[in-house]
Amino acid sequence: MFNIFKKKPKEVEIFSPIDGKLIKLEDVDDPVFSGKMMGDGFAVEADDSIVKSPADGVISILHESHHAFGITTDDGCEILVHVGMDTVGLKGLGFKPLKSKGDKVKAGDPILEVDFDLIKDKVPSTHTPVVVTNIDDYDILKLDLTVSGNDSVMKVIKK
Rank of each mutant, 00 (worst) to 15 (best):
Gly149His: 09
Ser49Gly: 01
Val130Tyr: 11
Asp40Met: 02
Lys158Leu: 15
Asp115Ile: 07
Pro9His: 15
Leu62Gln: 03
Lys101Met: 15
Gly57Gln: 09
Asp75Leu: 00
Gly39Thr: 03
Ile140Asn: 06
Ala55Lys: 04
Lys122Asp: 04
Lys158Pro: 09
Asp48Pro: 00
Gly41Arg: 08
Ser60Gln: 11
Glu13Gln: 13
Glu78His: 09
Leu118Ile: 06
Lys91Val: 07
Pro54Thr: 09
Lys6Phe: 03
Lys101Ile: 15
Gly149Trp: 07
Val44Ile: 11
Asp48Gly: 06
Glu64Phe: 15
Lys101Glu: 15
Lys155Val: 08
Glu45Asp: 12
Val58Phe: 10
Ser65Tyr: 11
Glu45Ile: 11
Asp121Ala: 15
Gly41Lys: 02
Met1Leu: 15
Gly41Met: 04
Val12Asn: 06
Gly108Met: 06
Lys21Ile: 04
Val51Asn: 02
Gly149Gln: 09
Lys99Tyr: 10
Glu45Pro: 03
Pro31Trp: 08
Ala68Thr: 03
Ile71Ala: 11
Thr73Ala: 10
His66Pro: 09
Asp75Cys: 04
His82Phe: 03
Val123Asn: 06
Phe116Ala: 06
Gly84Asn: 05
Asp19Leu: 07
Leu141Met: 13
Asp40Ala: 04
Ile23Met: 14
Glu26Leu: 08
Phe2Pro: 11
Val32Arg: 14
Thr73Gly: 09
Lys10Gly: 09
